[in-house]
Design a binder for these strands. Structure first.
Lengths: 226, 226
DNA sequence: GCAAAAGTGTTTTATTTACACCCATGA
DNA sequence: TCATGGGTGTAAATAAAACACTTTTGC
């Protein structure tokens, strides 16, 4: 415990982090949830999160909770706080303030299992999740808002995809996050005119005409990236 | 003190709020600072702020700190949190997390004096403040960023002005916040085409040609307003 | 040759930027 | 009448939106 000399009426609050971790699966924006194994809200789905440790930075705590509660093996491509939830009654155990974080997990992060006191972990449609514990639906709503706002910024959609990708795949990421359809021609025009994609020469095979592969021309460091 | 059953390694942190309160004075964007009267950083300028009380919401605490530390008499027109500063070493007394808020004070909020353990309070140029305590320069920088982003949103600039105002005055608010010059004709075109300003008929006298007075056509509730 | 998905251009509209002179008032 | 600040319009450039057919491949 920290030894902090404070005025008597000052609140010592439990300091927590929660993480809304997003990825694309099956052409859909999905969010990573854990099933709580202990009270309160046992057996209810929740965002992975928990209390910050002594001497631990907020984003370190968010990363640790993400790893230990869900056993995701990949590094998140983006991890940043977006809002702090501190309503007096949000946690029945007492005053707990949660610094909510948003994370983007790269393509390939499929296998998750529960860890710590989580019974299990799994991916759920971000726009239509199950009933969530605490005020986690509020947190998720705000996380999606932030994700949509950040989308154009620094080509965030690329973080959801592998190194090489096709333009229809990229458009799918935009559509899944924005939850609406985009015009194919206008989308291609806009993305290619930014000049940050470079054709990767090869072509990927499947049904129908093969698509051109692209990769990002130069990796720009995104603020909020680890 | 709250009685909170927590895992042993969990951090109980001091929960604080700090407020970057802005107003326009002398055609300049100014920020409200207090001179600290106690350690650490005694006799150093800082953003008004302090510890959250038991059972007190975060924005309530921000409002209370603003009032008691600076004795501003007017209601802020906007008060919203924008980022949480929680670096382990940001406060020498121990782990203190500060939920930083941004406030806009309306025209007329001139007289301020210190309150509580603040030696004094005063307005300073927001873009060129004095040396600040703790990480308050970081907080201020981020508050200005947020203010600039929010500027267009819901006609935030009007909150800095009295009920009736002239277009040159309004342009002055934009320029002070953005810290750059704007084109007069384009500015008027853009603002008037939004259709939210209505001419107030009268004219204000001074040097040079009198300016048309305007008022907002309909008051739209701004999210984050009290 | 047909099903499936990729790829491609033009027109219209709206938005943004650049830019210079006249007007109303008080001293 | 002059100094001071307020007010006005147009043209060019850029960005955004609407819209339908052709191409390439595997089966």
């Amino acid at each position: 415990m920290s030894t902090l000399i404070l005025p008597p009426q000052a609140t010592q609050a439990g300091l927590a982090v929660d993480v809304a971790a997003f990825a694309m699966h099956a052409g859909e924006l999905q969010v990573l949830l854990v099933e709580r194994g202990s009270l309160p809200h046992a057996r209810t789905w929740a965002l992975p999160g928990g209390f910050v440790h002594l001497g631990e930075e907020l984003n370190e705590a968010a990363l640790r909770e993400l790893r230990t509660k869900t056993s995701v093996e990949l590094e998140p491509r983006l991890l940043e706080q977006f809002y702090t939830f501190g309503a007096v009654e949000r946690d029945p155990r007492g005053r707990v303030v949660s610094v909510a974080h948003m994370a983007v997990l790269p393509h390939g992060t499929v296998r998750v299992t529960g860890g710590g006191n989580a019974l299990g972990a799994g991916w759920f449609p971000a726009h239509t999740p199950p009933t969530l514990a605490f005020d986690h639906q509020d947190i998720l709503n705000r996380a999606i808002d932030r994700l949509q706002i950040r989308l154009e910024y620094a080509l965030l959609a690329l973080e959801f995809l592998p190194d090489t990708f096709t333009l229809p795949e990229l458009q799918g990421v935009y559509e899944a996050i924005l939850n609406k359809q985009l015009d194919k021609r206008n989308f291609r025009k806009r993305l290619l005119s930014q000049g940050v994609l470079t054709t990767s020469g090869e072509r990927r095979s499947g049904v129908g005409r093969p698509a051109q592969l692209y990769r990002r021309a130069s990796r720009v460091r995104i603020p909020g990236t680890l």
